[in-house]
Design a protein around this nucleic acid. Structure first.
Length: 457
RNA sequence: GUGGUUGUAGCUCAGCUGGUUAGAGCGCUGGAUUGUGGUUCCAGAGGUCGCCGGUUCGAACCCGGUCUUCCACCCCA
């Protein structure tokens, strides 16, 4: 009984064209990672559960795909636990492995486990799939690729400067001009919370502030009030709601607002350093913008927070993000190692390139010439030429079956193969080939040298 | 995890207040056309109406559950 084929929720198949396009993006990103001095590593697709659990908050734990133990996993569960139906307690007994949730935590584990083999500061890049048991949505899947570059073992702000340059280089190279690299700093957000006397509500405060462009000033204020932030406190940060002007003037106004917070001022100083450096170095096509509402991934970022927005005409939002996290490896017992890194959102970059028509035509590679098959002797004659063409770097193939010519021509046509070679008895007698241009319909009878020459052009 | 939405041929979709053999376009296969594809013409194949149950004389259509799709929230790339 045949079953209806299906694929798991939130996963996708990729056809030849999609794979070629995705590979184009990935290889562009990788080549720039390398010119910036990053080195590749790979980690397993699944880790021991304890490596991942508890690193992404309660919400994160829920979204981690757990792998059921092999064998009779229920035999290890005592009746009391089983009857209690406590999912989280039961999970730890029947599942000891879990699928990779991101590339950062496995990287931290890698650094700690291999600390004697690597030289700090260590710059690594990693392009691998990750899995999340999330509910799928537009541009969000349960299996997707992350393209990460991180540096560990240096607190220097020059790293942040380098990462901004890297973003600019990659997007310019892909032809995506006019992206906006948004920059913020956790210390500034902390400072603001401190100044308004809501230090304990930092997360609530920033999560609400982050939604400013989405739900507007009134919506943000409403959410803040709901979370128990006082009206007086909100009053104090009123300037944040209409924060415009140059990066310089924004910094000035932050400096005033945060004058009583040492941490906040430190954040201003760090931002100022980065902005000055980028100003001096220049960017190819990107814009750099100080954005105090930027607060993603706040759970672990401790300094810089970076996010890249697609050009305005493409309504797709964020296409990359990153930041600084002090003590990245502390959870695995290696103290005082700071990390900073960025990530490229492959799927969304794909959508941007597709929408703007930025994939080079050469990305979709097809066979350049198809030899029609007229029988055993003709096939062998053709295959000798195919071999010669391949040695000249031309993508060539022979139609495998001796079927009707109409069928073979049709196949070439549908695959978009630009040239077809007809070589039957009469050509074999003369040691020639009939080369047909499928676009114009014209054809010429040529010898092997001329065949290679005309296909090479 | 919460709320909503979608599912009919390989694909995109019609299908009336519940009524007999569920349709179209595209695609596919064969032929017109035995060494010439795209265009045209002719013929043909292809459907447990997502799945399970219920209501009814009768269900693609109504009801419940479930899976899936897409959207919003939460969160996030």
């Amino acid at each position: 009984m045949a079953q209806k084929p299906s694929i798991a929720k939130g996963t996708r198949d990729f056809g030849p064209e999609e794979v070629n396009k995705r590979n184009y993006i990935i290889s562009t990103i990788k080549s720039h990672f390398e010119t910036f001095g990053f080195m590749p590593i790979e980690t397993p697709s699944f880790e021991n559960s304890e490596t991942l659990m508890g690193k992404y908050g309660d919400e994160g734990d829920r979204l981690i795909f757990k792998i059921l133990n092999s064998g009779d996993y229920l035999s290890k569960v005592d009746d009391a636990l089983y009857t209690k139906k406590d999912a989280s307690a039961l999970t730890s007994r029947i599942s000891e492995k879990a699928l990779r949730y991101d590339l950062t935590v496995p990287f931290a584990r890698y650094v700690v486990m291999h600390q004697n083999e690597i030289d700090l500061p260590f710059k690594r890049y990693q392009v691998q799939p990750v899995w999340r048991a999330d509910r799928p949505q537009k541009g969000r899947f349960r299996e997707f690729y992350q393209c990460d570059a991180d540096v560990v073992g240096s607190t220097s702000l020059w790293q942040e400067v380098e990462f901004i340059q890297l973003y600019d280089t990659v997007f310019s190279s892909l032809g995506v001009e006019g992206v906006t690299i948004k920059l913020n700093n956790r210390k500034i957000l902390s400072g603001i919370a401190e100044v308004i006397g809501a230090k304990d509500k930092l997360i609530d405060f920033t999560v609400a502030l982050d939604k400013l462009d989405k739900i507007g000033e009134d919506g943000v204020k409403k959410e803040m009030l709901e979370k128990g932030i006082t009206e007086m406190a909100i009053e104090k940060v009123q300037p944040l709601f209409s924060f415009t002007g140059s990066n310089g003037s924004k910094l000035e106004s932050l400096k005033t607002m945060l004058s009583t917070s040492d941490e906040g001022l430190k954040g201003v100083e760090e931002l100022s350093f980065i902005l000055t450096a980028i100003d001096a170095l220049g960017l190819k096509t990107s814009n750099l913008e100080l954005d105090v509402t930027l607060a993603r991934g706040l759970n672990y970022y401790t300094g810089a927070i970076i996010e890249v927005a697609a050009p305005e005409r493409v309504k797709i939002g964020s296409i990359g993000g990153g930041g600084r996290y002090d003590d990245l490896t502390g959870i695995f017992g290696l103290k005082n190692v700071s990390g900073v890194g960025i990530s490229f959102g492959l799927d969304r970059i794909y959508l941007v390139l597709d929408e703007l028509g930025l994939f080079p035509p050469s990305v979709t590679t097809t066979t350049e010439v198809l030899f029609l098959n007229f029988g055993q002797n003709e096939a062998l004659y053709g295959l000798k030429a195919v071999k010669a063409l391949r040695e000249s770097g031309i993508k060539a193939e022979l139609y495998p079956d001796d079927t009707k010519m109409k069928k073979q021509m049709n196949y070439a046509n549908k695959r978009g193969i630009p040239f077809v070679v007809l070589a039957g008895e009469s050509e074999m007698d003369k040691n020639t080939f009939t080369l047909k241009n499928m676009n114009s319909g014209t054809q010429d009878e040529v010898d092997i040298t001329a065949l290679i020459e005309s296909l090479r052009a």
